[in-house]
Design a protein around this nucleic acid. Structure first.
Length: 328
DNA sequence: GGTAGACCTGGACGC
DNA sequence: GCGTCCAGGTCTACC
């Protein structure tokens, strides 16, 4: 099978670092527990290809990327860029060490990288489809968005028949809101998702979203937050979540899960607003790394209920993701 | 600036 | 099998 090698930081572990955030369970991602492999289709400039990523020699060793088709040099570079974004290969050992110095609880396990999507667009849509809905609803919306609007992987082969990409902004921008509502079951998010896609499609000079500016580490957090809050379907929670997906960890995406964590694990009492205030104070000492401390506490709780995330099957444990269900 | 209520879907529950 | 209730964050109208 054609493919290439992907070099990683010396402390990188594919099962631990890819299965580190709920989106690893969402279509079109597929983590094979048996193979300890990530499979998904990637949309390259000219065509769609399937990738299967493994780390045969364990932590720190290079990743093996098998592809459904032989790639040109440019296509390999493109696939490389997308996978590096997903797997957070941009987070060097040094940057993880900075986090571990601030919060040594995770130094032993080596945790610190939180996985994401190959593109900011997919991360934003996944975030909007995770708002005001229980986790099985998010799983369902992402599955249907791929099934209805995704591009099929030609001659799927080992990737399975009917495997489709995540829809790109162009496709979603052309979709009818009624189609999204009726076939993708996104409910009232229909028009917001179309508008969001149009903003990604429109050049910044014509009022569209300046993705490069959002992804530029030199852009101040507050400027990024202000832009995100202006996007349809994005409020304070979603903005903070998209910021962590952009590698900006100072803001906490606080939601009902956070409140549950505050009450049941940290022992906080009082109203939702009071618990949220205490949560902010609790993570304040971690400063620019606050999100990672917060998230790993939550993730550790989930894993204490159902074992390491790399043993979770997408169609069983993966559907029970939120603690409200896990704790039953 | 703060707050109440509407927005949808799917799962749980009672009958 | 059907009806009702509830969880979930954003948005708008209103004070």
């Amino acid at each position: 099978m054609p493919g290439f090698t992907l070099h990683v930081p010396a402390d990188y572990s594919l099962p631990r670092d890819f299965c580190s955030y709920g989106y690893f369970l969402l279509f079109p991602n597929h983590w094979s527990v048996r193979e300890q492999a990530l499979r998904r289709p990637l949309r390259l400039s000219e065509r769609v290809v399937g990738v299967r990523v493994t780390q045969p020699r364990g932590e720190g060793a290079a990743l093996r990327v098998e592809t459904s088709h032989t790639l040109s040099r440019d296509e390999r570079d493109e696939a490389h860029r997308q996978l590096a974004r997903m797997l957070r290969l941009d987070e060097s050992e040094a940057s993880i060490a900075v986090f571990h110095r601030l919060d040594p609880r995770w130094a032993r396990t080596g945790q610190g990288r939180v996985s994401r999507s190959p593109t900011l667009f997919e991360d934003v849509v996944k975030t909007v489809t995770s708002c005001n809905v229980t986790w099985p609803g998010t799983v369902q919306m992402n599955r249907r968005l791929c099934e209805v609007l995704g591009t099929p992987l030609p001659e799927g082969g080992a990737w399975g028949e009917g495997v489709r990409t995540f829809p790109d902004a162009a496709k979603l921008a052309r979709a009818r809101p009624q189609t999204l509502r009726a076939r993708c079951r996104v409910g009232y998010r229909d028009q917001r998702l179309v508008e969001l896609a149009r903003l990604f499609r429109t050049p910044p000079a014509k009022g569209g979203l300046d993705v490069a500016r959002l992804e530029d580490p030199a852009t101040p957090d507050e400027a990024v937050r202000e832009v995100l809050l202006g996007l349809p379907g994005v409020g304070p929670y979603a903005a903070a979540n998209i910021m962590q997906l952009l590698g900006r960890y100072a803001h906490l995406p606080l939601d009902t899960e956070s409140v549950r964590h505050g009450r049941s694990v940290l022992g906080y009492r009082g109203t939702t607003a009071q618990v949220m205030k205490r949560l902010k104070a609790h993570y304040a000492p971690f400063g620019a790394q606050a999100f990672r401390s917060y998230w790993l506490e939550l993730w550790t709780f989930y894993e204490s209920k159902h074992g390491p995330a790399w043993t979770w099957e997408r169609d069983s444990t993966g559907k029970m993701f939120t603690a409200a269900l896990l704790s039953k």
